[in-house]
Computed example of a mutant assay.
Amino acid sequence: MLDIDSLPDPCRKEPVLSKVAIIGSCITRDLWPIVGAEPSDLLYISRTSLPSLFARPLDGVQPGEEPPPSLGAFPHRAMVNDLKKRALAALVAHQPSHIIFDFIDERLDLLAVGDTIVTHSWELDVSGYLEQPAFDGARTIGRTSPACDLLWLQAADEMAAFLQATPLRDATLIVHEARWATHYLDEAGRTQAFADEVEIFQGKPAVIADHNAMLDLYQPAFLQRVPDAARVAAPPELHLADCRHRWGLSPFHYVDDYYREVWRGLQALGV
């Protein structure tokens, strides 16, 4: 006998599960564990830069089959993907319902190597790969330099065109707007001020105000080029770092309430 109650209700809509891709940093990837969730199908593209994404693969570099002792599997893979320029193909293949951009990883310098560009991440710095002949003659393009700004804006044009020319046009695009914190909570929960200059990683100093000025250029410029993108941001009072953050003290390792606020914004957009 046919059980009528077991038939699907044509008027009931099943929930649509999001399939998220992040082009950005831990400020977005950390949302899930901090709010106690786990993404079902996440592509996380990090330790890169828009100009590097659209450059050609670096010839001659020889990544090892196993990560160097200084690196885990994921950071090694992210660094190799930047050198080999695999991220955009992976992004299209992922078929995301949502693509979240944040530009905190755009703090890293670029390297001009022959006729291409790669991201000078900490992972590249400690990997030993910079000693390979493929990097002979590499020149640094400082992140806060006018040359880097020009390259980034040109790459933002390329990203806007790429999004429209591929099936990614159907994804919900989101910009997670952020700033480097100028203050942090210490172990006792007291608010302290960062020095004007901090280290991005060992031997790489950065002036907080310079990087916030850069974000003030990058974020609106990207939104101008991708006008359909939604914006999520925490209020200014939550741009506060926390020395008890899981990754340690940094101007972009925020208090938990920062992530909860951004999470609410993403949930409203179907993430």
Rank of each mutant, 00 (worst) to 15 (best):
E123N: 13
E123D: 14
L124K: 05
L124N: 04
L124F: 04
L124E: 05
L124Y: 01
D125C: 12
D125H: 15
D125L: 13
V126S: 09
V126R: 14
V126F: 07
S127P: 10
S127W: 12
S127T: 12
S127F: 12
G128L: 13
G128F: 14
G128N: 09
Y129A: 07
Y129D: 02
Y129C: 08
Y129Q: 10
L130P: 04
L130Y: 07
L130A: 10
E131Y: 09
E131W: 04
E131S: 15
E131T: 15
Q132L: 08
Q132D: 07
Q132N: 11
Q132M: 07
P133H: 08
P133A: 08
P133I: 04
A134E: 13
A134V: 10
F135G: 13
F135Q: 07
D136C: 11
D136L: 13
D136V: 13
D136H: 10
G137H: 07
G137F: 03
G137M: 07
G137D: 07
A138T: 06
A138H: 11
A138Y: 11
A138P: 08
R139N: 06
R139I: 04
T140I: 14
I141C: 00
I141D: 03
I141H: 05
G142D: 12
G142N: 08
R143C: 10
T144I: 10
S145K: 05
S145P: 06
S145Q: 02
S145L: 05
P146E: 00
P146C: 12
P146T: 11
A147V: 12
A147K: 07
C148A: 14
C148I: 08
C148T: 10
D149Y: 12
D149W: 11
D149H: 11
L150R: 15
L150F: 05
L151R: 10
L151P: 06
W152R: 11
W152P: 04
W152D: 00
W152F: 15
W152E: 00
L153K: 11
L153T: 03
Q154I: 02
Q154P: 00
Q154C: 02
Q154F: 09
A155C: 03
A155I: 05
A155E: 02
A155W: 05
A155F: 05
A156V: 14
A156Y: 12
A156M: 15
A156H: 13
E158Q: 12
E158H: 04
E158K: 11
M159I: 02
M159K: 00
M159N: 07
A160M: 03
A160K: 09
A160D: 01
A160Y: 00
A160N: 10
A161D: 09
A161K: 15
A161C: 02
F162K: 01
F162G: 02
F162M: 04
F162R: 06
L163Q: 09
Q164F: 00
Q164S: 09
Q164Y: 02
A165Y: 04
A165E: 10
T166E: 01
T166I: 02
P167N: 02
P167M: 02
P167I: 03
L168Y: 03
L168P: 04
L168M: 00
L168V: 01
